[in-house]
Design a protein around this nucleic acid. Structure first.
Lengths: 349, 349
DNA sequence: CTGAAAGCGCTTACAG
DNA sequence: CTGAAAGCGCTTACAG
């Protein structure tokens, strides 16, 4: 059925068999107006029977583009990020682009190396969500210096001059905290993410502002730091236990991600602390399992799939603008979030 | 700091500035023995100051390889598959390979199109886990006909002649069912995956064999089919309710994946059916949340990260063998699984 | 030790 | 309507 070792057909082979030049073959295949119908038919027929496919490497070299973009993600095994990946990959495919995926493992060093890799691979553009400890942006500025389109999403650096696709972390956190206050909480703790991560900072600020706006005291000792790494669940357990020791009158916690929140719930369940009666909990991200845990978790829905699609669309726009020598406008696109009220907080509806 | 529009340096530019030929520049950069130390130094210095990076498109064309592989996955947002992706991407990067990721969305049509895409993009090899409804393998045979390395993992087709990385689904299912029997279950149901999926078939066969080996009757009406798509949780809920209606004396269920199992647990919890006392449950895959649900789920741990690493290693080996004109041996690599006993089944330890 | 030439597979401005 | 030539950026066998 299949020829063994079917070596790919080239333009030259078609030209030789037809006794015409490769130029004419090329033009016939691309349906140039100045090639005779007869020649076109001959070429197209033979191309079909020989299963001709243009050599992508030659095209890349000639066109100086590969229709491939690079994607750097801190952690692939993560419900939110995998949704983003799915959004990017599907939107890219619809527009004829392929996606090279790389994982920074939350390491600045790796992230830097991967940017270099993608640059030397000559991808047409780069999509990135930063590692938590990235606080030097020269690698990103190098991308910009090479005039290569760059779009950041979710975990961004405000200072880098490029388009960004984000959610309003501060507002989402504010609303989440406000919901706890509205449901009667008076002493609300916060489990936050790492010092440097912009979204951890913004969520913290939203939490703090909600307290102050409601004339509740802000108490630094109620804020616990989390690494947000593989051990998030365990961090939730530990912090919940510690919190209880330090402040046994806390009646609400706003937690920077669902997995940590689930760790906390599990710890409280074990200690027979009633949720939400004694302590109400709000998470962040709306992971699959937050609906499934008992009690189910009130959380902020973060539109991962949409974020992926939007980030690719913006990158694609910039790729096209650059090719057409149109001016590039950097945009900051803010996607809506909303609070999903479930059993871990008190409310009526 | 950065030159605006830093156009990449070429060999020719270096050659011109130094008044030597591009051949010599190329050889100097590659440290050929027949280039004088003096020339090498001059070239290397200038290359460094001009930040020379070889043009990847030109290299690809010349070397007929791109150091890039393609990966087709049925569903990216899935704990097991995202672990596999992570394993593949990290192992590939360590060996200087980049990974293009594509999602078939469990669709044969898309899968076929994506194979063509990867082939025309001239990736150096392809890694694939099949869509559930793929029962025609011509697209895969085309890869093989083009002498392009191909490795299948997890969801494979037995008939396709290529290397495979899998687990022993039949044995894992057998052991899971045996565990239910050992813990005292007498009437065990099975929630299985789709008709065509090889691993669904194998898990079903393992379940059936365990029953027969233990002289328990096999009853077809105790086997429920699941799509295993986005709505797995809901499928678990539905099937659990139906099962209870049809056979209220069932005392154990072996379920083909954790998310469906969690749906079932949630349904039983709501109906105040005691797990494991009235019905014991075993899942499959060891998703994050299976440890976290209440009661925690006994399940089969499936080594996703290791499977990803192993699949890439095998592909890499075949790429190298092909380049060296060594004969290719197709291997079937079976990775170990083990049963994680938790609160959803009765046992002592 | 250095360089001219050919070639990887394609496209396109130009000549005829 | 067709084709020779140049070029994308590199490498390497060969000549000197």
């Amino acid at each position: 059925m299949y020829l063994y070792f079917m070596k790919p057909t080239t333009l030259k082979e078609i030209a030789d068999k037809l006794n015409i030049s490769t130029s004419t073959v090329s033009k016939a295949l691309k349906n140039y107006p100045d090639v005779s119908k007869k020649t076109k038919d001959l070429v197209n027929d033979l191309a079909k029977t020989l299963n001709y496919k243009p050599n992508a490497f030659a095209l890349n070299l000639r066109n100086k583009e590969s229709k491939t973009i690079g994607l750097i993600i801190p952690e692939i095994v993560h419900h939110f990020f995998s949704s983003v990946i799915k959004g990017i990959v599907s939107e890219a495919e619809e527009n004829g682009y392929l996606v090279i995926i790389l994982q920074s493992n939350e390491s600045y060093e790796l992230e830097k190396k991967q940017i270099d890799l993608l640059l030397s691979q000559q991808v047409d553009g780069i999509l990135i969500s930063l590692a938590n400890n990235t606080d030097d942006f020269t690698h990103l500025n190098e991308v910009i210096a090479q005039d290569k389109p760059l779009v950041m999403f979710d975990k961004i650096a405000k200072l880098v001059r490029c388009s960004k696709v984000i959610i309003d972390d501060r507002k989402a956190a504010y609303d989440a905290t406000q919901h706890l206050i509205d449901s009667g909480c008076k002493k609300i703790a916060h489990f936050r993410g790492p010092h440097l991560a912009q979204n951890a900072i913004d969520r913290f600020l939203g939490y703090k502002k909600a307290l102050l706006d409601n004339h509740l005291p802000f108490d630094e000792s109620l804020v616990f730091f989390c690494q947000c790494d593989d051990d998030s669940f365990e961090e939730g357990v530990q912090n919940a236990q510690q919190l209880l020791k330090d402040h046994n009158d806390v009646d609400g916690i706003f937690i920077t991600n669902d997995l940590i929140a689930i760790g906390a719930i599990s710890a409280f369940n074990k200690l027979h602390i009633k949720i939400p009666e004694q302590i109400a909990i709000v998470g962040f991200s709306n992971w699959l399992m937050s609906a499934v845990i008992s009690p189910s978790l009130t959380t902020v829905d973060q539109p991962g799939f949409l974020m992926g699609k939007t980030a690719f669309k913006q990158l694609y726009k910039e790729i096209k603008d650059r090719k057409a020598n149109r001016p590039i406008l950097f945009e900051e696109i803010i996607l809506p979030t909303f609070l999903i009220k479930r059993a871990s907080t008190k409310h009526r509806d």
